[in-house]
Amino acid sequence: MLCRVADSLFWMSRYLERAENQARFIDVTSSIALGYRGSEQVLWSSLLHAGGEVEHFLQRYAAPSRENVINYLLFDRRNLNSVASCLAAARENARSVREILTTPMWEAVNRFYLRVRSAAMQPELVLKHPHPFLDQIKRSAHQILGATEATWSHGEAWHFSSLGYQLERADKTSRILDVRYFILLPLSGSTGTQLDVVQWAALLESTGALQMYRRTFGRIQPVNVVDFLLRSNVFPRSLAFCMQQVQRSLAEISHSSADGVSTDAEILTTEVRDELIRLTAAEILDGGLHQFVDRFQTRLTSIGQAVSERFFELSTPVNVQ
């Protein structure tokens, strides 16, 4: 497969996943904010913390009000991670590899893009009542995933797309856990003060994990929440699960190559995954969750770079044997 095509598939998938996560984060935050007793602005700005976007936001908006944050995260094209920006980028990438995608996939991406574009023309309607639109975003994203699973050969192209999805997903789950945990910790603490179940449930919901968590652990305990989101082998948004998928796709891609040698990306991924298996949630919390997430994200970036160097940037040899 062409290097350029692999690159575009990877980024198309990352942007689609990013848009879906953005929508889920906003949806959950909107829900908590209703009848909320604390500061709404602190609540909304936590979303900006998760994306590392506080400064960028404050240069452009007066305050992290509900409307401002939602607008920034959904429609502001100056924010490269806004849903509108993500969809424009995903669609541009999709268009450049349209011949590789199946027609149902392309049409699902295109419809998603058109829906977001038309919503962005009247943002005030969405800002007043965001839930239906956010729900649409999630459904559109799932429709693409469905078309991808059901109509596309699970070959090299599929694996490059999967790499994009999994790396983005692992990144987002780790970020939201980091930020929410930071806010929730002083409230619940290890001292056994009253646990803010609503907030912990909201954290799980942000990653779409509440239902699946309940089936695994039942009652909400901070250490179990951390365990589930970091270490679950079966939940599709946990770090361990995503890394397992990355490992699998990298193996498929490089084993189909002539030399069959493990790539730097594979070695890095294996390291990260081994650590997730070896450490318990309690150990991770003891060592500091924030430090752990920080290190995890640095390594995710390295994996992305290694993939890019190995597969997307073929230098042009002068003579080929």
Binding site: M1, L2, C3, R4, E156, I253, A258, T316, N319, V320
Partner: peptide, 19 residues
């Protein structure tokens, strides 16, 4: 940019598995 011609005048495309 996906293609190149080597010094034996052969055309190649740049793929993830090499030229």
């Amino acid at each position: 940019p996906d293609l190149f011609v080597d010094d034996r005048d052969v055309v190649w495309m740049k793929t993830t598995q090499g030229p």
